[in-house]
């Protein structure tokens, strides 16, 4: 079993619902966003770089098979689960940020200050907070917690706390265009494997040799 994701760029409308769902479900402190959606070629989101040329690209941790972030971590705080998911153990991380230097996708984020303090900068009414309220341990390792420690690295955890309940990640469930799909990349008959095969699935920065478990399907036409 190799858990992978397919994002159909044909179906992505650039609404950033996945970004919001991810941020809210995973209690990301102010300033940190595990997931982002951009308009390639354009300085501004949702602005065509050229007339008739516009598509949207969601980017988060690519859960690489040859993950440089995992190999550089001096304390094995970043590690790969049996299903290929790359996780961060918040209790183990020493905050050296070597993994952030090593990641070519720029998806890793740091808690530069106490996350409670960071989020207080938002100035929400009545101390409003968000995020899945319970911490989650996978085989004893703390891979999700609603309020992170100061000085540790965080990134997309493939919603491992929901996977445990048999649920798809928040970004998949929250996508109004149904552009995101999760499945077993090892099984050639799985829906995701078929989609990659039939629709010319590609990965980002293949020249870096990271072998991501996140695939993209190219858009056929540009949504204008």
């Amino acid at each position: 079993m190799r858990r992978g994701m397919v994002i159909d760029l044909e179906k992505c409308i650039g609404c950033r619902s996945c970004v919001v769902a991810c941020k809210q479900h995973n209690a990301q402190p102010a300033g940190n966003w595990w997931n982002r959606v951009v308009t390639p070629g354009s300085e501004r989101h949702l602005t065509p770089p050229e007339k008739g040329k516009e598509y949207f690209l969601p980017i988060h941790c690519q859960h690489c098979n040859n993950a440089p972030c995992e190999k550089v971590c001096p304390v094995n705080a970043t590690y790969t689960e049996e299903d290929g998911t790359v996780l961060v153990d918040f209790e183990r991380c020493i905050g050296c940020r070597y993994c952030m230097a090593a990641c070519p996708y720029g998806v890793r984020q740091f808690n530069w200050e106490d996350p409670k303090k960071a989020t207080a900068r938002y100035g929400y009414q009545d101390g409003y907070t968000y995020g899945h309220p319970q911490e989650f341990r996978l085989k004893g390792r703390l891979v999700y917690m609603p309020s992170r420690f100061k000085g540790v690295v965080e990134k997309c955890n493939f919603c491992v706390h929901y996977a445990d309940k048999g649920l798809d990640p928040a970004c998949v469930r929250g996508c109004p265009g149904n552009a995101r799909h999760v499945g077993d990349l090892d099984d050639p008959d799985s829906r995701v494997s078929k989609m990659i095969r039939d629709k010319n699935g590609f990965t980002l920065l293949p020249e870096k040799g990271t072998k991501p478990n996140v695939y993209y399907l190219p858009p056929k036409r540009k949504e204008v």
Partner: peptide, 30 residues
Amino acid sequence: PLTIAPLGMQNTEFSVPIASGQYEPLMNTF
């Protein structure tokens, strides 16, 4: 480091923005 050539566009190189890690009202988020 993540720069891509947007699909279907010639001679364009696009740097994919990163979340800065700090929220400031007047600062860019990405």
